[in-house]
């Protein structure tokens, strides 16, 4: 298990390999479909240098809780916007599932990492979120852009900054 802190520096991610398990501590940014579209069209409302985006749309917090259930959503839907974010300085994202080759090519160029969170682990992952606030697009509800503070958020390296991937095997073939 490798402990890493945000914001990421070039060196903090460079040695990661697919299947490495990490615990992430620090500020990260929650966004999904509509927030990505907004950032793409209107620019980023926060300093992206070395930051990490989490593809997620949490449920609302119950009374006396910080946030509701907060697991990952499918990252392929944000394919169109990720290269823009990496070019702006975003160093990593947390999500789930396949992403496109063009995103991976950009990740190699910008030395970015794709961390996987386990799909459907929303209750457990919410326990790692210690603070949250909406920083933009509040009217989007669950799709608003949130800044959160996580402690020891568990993730696995799906694609590292050299483009090496858990999915590299020809998974679509079966006997």
């Amino acid at each position: 298990m490798i402990e890493i802190n945000t914001p990421f520096t070039k060196n903090s991610l460079i040695s990661l390999k697919p299947f490495d398990r990490v615990l992430i501590t620090g500020v990260i940014y929650i966004a999904r479909d509509q927030a990505h579209k907004k950032m793409f069209e209107e620019g980023l409302p926060f300093n992206p240098e070395g930051q990490c985006i989490y593809h997620c749309g949490p449920s609302d917090a119950k009374k006396n809780m910080i946030i509701g259930s907060a697991g990952p959503t499918s990252s392929y839907r944000m394919n169109k916007y990720m290269p823009y974010l990496f070019d702006k300085g975003i160093k990593a994202f947390i999500g789930k599932g396949m992403i496109s080759d063009s995103v991976i090519e950009n990740m190699k160029k910008n030395k970015c990492v794709y961390f996987g969170a386990i799909g459907g682990l929303g209750a457990k992952l919410s326990m790692c979120i210690k603070k949250q606030k909406i920083i933009a697009y509040e009217s989007l509800g669950t799709e608003a852009l949130r800044e959160i503070y996580v402690e020891k958020f568990p993730a696995i390296v799906i694609i590292n900054c050299d483009g090496e991937s858990i999915y590299e095997r020809d998974n679509n073939k079966y006997e």
């Binding site: 119950k62 259930s69 459907g120 682990l121 209750a123 457990k124």
Partner: peptide, 28 residues
């Protein structure tokens, strides 16, 4: 080993959801 880890996490997640009475997954 990775698969076992994921499956154990899913069980742990279901236990937390039931105990805290929060959604198993945010997509309800």
């Amino acid at each position: 080993a990775t698969a076992r880890y994921v499956l154990e996490e899913l069980i742990s997640n279901a236990d937390i959801a039931e105990r805290e009475y929060i959604p198993i997954c945010q997509d309800t």
